[in-house]
Design a protein around this nucleic acid. Sequence first.
DNA 1: GCGTTCATGTAAATGGTTACATGATTCC
DNA 2: GGAATCATGTAACCATTTACATGAACGC
Lengths: 188, 188
Amino acid sequence: MSLRYALLGLLSERPASGYALTQRFEQSLQKYAWHANHSQIYPELAKLAADGLVTVVEEGARGRRTYAITDAGREALREWLLTSGGGPRRVRNEAVLRTFLLSTLEPADAALLLRGYVDRSARDLAELQAVVADLEASEQAGEPQRFGRFAAEFGVRQYAAFHDWAQWALARVESATPDEGDGQESGA
Amino acid sequence: MSLRYALLGLLSERPASGYALTQRFEQSLQKYAWHANHSQIYPELAKLAADGLVTVVEEGARGRRTYAITDAGREALREWLLTSGGGPRRVRNEAVLRTFLLSTLEPADAALLLRGYVDRSARDLAELQAVVADLEASEQAGEPQRFGRFAAEFGVRQYAAFHDWAQWALARVESATPDEGDGQESGA
DNA sequence: GCGTTCATGTAAATGGTTACATGATTCC
DNA sequence: GGAATCATGTAACCATTTACATGAACGC
């Protein structure tokens, strides 16, 4: 069901074609919230239209159809957001699973992975911070900025927390293997 | 594929039955890393056994089978952790999606939801911090503590970041609707 | 003996990924 | 005219959820 509401959310910002929605998934939602590809998006748009939650407002070149959210669609989105939040949270995050499994590795292997995490999260964080800076600038310039600011801030804080964690974990692993085979083994 | 490695990881700690593994998913992994239920776990254990990555080491009462990881299983887990980390990250987190969609709501509705998030994340955080305290205590007591410490710390930091974000977002929303229908409307 | 928990499975349906498929338009 | 991009779709497969199903052991 989530895909359906992700699409309604994007369309509530402004009308778009399936192609454009696919790109917006790739550029924003995909990174920290929800992944979807075009082969899932097109059929779902057709279903949403059949249910009257969106309508085709324009047919352009190459068979392009621009969809817009309807009043019923807005109401369905609001309803979902307000009523169905308390259920069991189903997280599925491979990066976090890897985190969990890290301690099954030899310390040297774990350190290798953690160094990669530190680097990668630093880059991800910088990327997102640039996005936030852009949003902030256009906000200062007086644009209404309804969408994306909350989510971007959320992403920044998550990445920052991940980065800090990876450094903490790396320090811990390194203190367990002082010098990687130096002989200085402080057993017990 | 992730489920497979989650199971190998749990079994690398110690042998267990499908029933016990299901419970361990419910108590730990499920909360912040990976969700799975028994109807998925049992068939996957059978496949792992067929592939020689685990073996049945004991058959107990009520048809209970205790599985243990094999050397091939350990190697497969290590291989997966070390080689396949760089692919595209596929995140799917409904809580985060809701975050993203929050700005489609009226400020009053958004504030309502955010207050719920603040409360809930405070409770989740406290719960996890208790787990960490337990782990820390048994660590001090000299137990080897291979598993779970990294992941628990990770969870604590994620929840803390979420909690802080929710408070930040709530403050922002509340400053946009000063007094919720008091008449003091400071329109543009 | 009766209820609860332990313990394992399977089947149908849904959700999601990968691969295949097609063709129009635009830019060069 | 040829390559890249725009634009949409479908089919087969795999992963996951929900519901159904069964029975042994344990505590009372």
